[in-house]
Amino acid sequence: MIAEMTYAEASLLALREEMQRDLRVWALGEDLGPEGGLAGQYRGLQTEFGGARICDTPISESMIMAAGVGAALAGTRPVVELRFADFAICAADEIVNQTAKIRYMFNGQTRVPLVIRQAIGMRGGTAAQHSQSMEAWWVHVPGLTVLTPATAADNYGMLKAAIRCDDPVIYLEHKALWGIKGAVDTDAPLVQIGKADKVQRGDDVTIVTWSGMRVECIKAADTLRQRGIAVDLIDLRSLWPWDRDMVMDSVSRTGRLVVAQEAVRVGGFGAEIVAEVSEELWAKLRAPIRRLGAPRCPVPFSMPLEDACRISADMIVKAAVDSVE
């Protein structure tokens, strides 16, 4: 079945189906029941599955996370809702020192099959403590799988894949995408974790992006097409593991790379891609690689200041044009 739905609704459907399919799947977090989560991602689930499987918690992030870990060790597959990435840091110890390391330290005696949902990104005036894009923090931690779906279809297919994954998955939805509609094919095979999405093919320049920045990159690619520049646009959608093959193939062909991320540029995940590409494809590059990311400042509240910290389609266009010319 192919249906039009929002990014938030797609994740709701995915979770609902996974909970119907596997009794071990359950979710815990703040405010899941009454209003169904901040974007309705849990709407109706408590009525359908009961309070034990859609568990409303106190504001106790460390314990929410630790409960997920313990319950994963004891035979369930929890979906741990931490609301915003900014609050996930309240549970950073449980994520980094426990969740990520248990399988390894205990030499594979157990796995930690859980999904840690934490929305990222700017949504217009949410300021310094509700706007951060922290994907690079998690990618740096061995043991964690890190996903960044950017479309309704991916939020359906990837959440399902994450729930079925036997390792802990950091699942980063972007707040600005919650209301955006797209077609979801519920019969399509699940998204394979680690496989990027080729948004469009082109031979002139490769643009690599993920999460909310996909939207700006599509705008930029349209503008570039009008200027006669064909973009090979890749939405990584999985940051660990990331689709090296698709990126290397593309850049081998175009010889040009622009990486666009919303997160702070310094030490961001874009730096990893750039480093890998330049190590591997040095001889094939026809122009310096361009890397776009936010200035290294907290996200300011005021609209023009916040906008000054955003990577826009115009900036992506300029970077691509610079690299082609």
């Binding site: 005036g125 300021a127 310094a128 403590q129 509700h130 300011p300 509240f301 005021s302 200041l305």
Partner: peptide, 10 residues
């Protein structure tokens, strides 16, 4: 109060 950088919550 905070030069517009904080907003309502800060």
């Amino acid at each position: 109060t905070c030069g517009g950088k904080g907003g309502s919550m800060h």
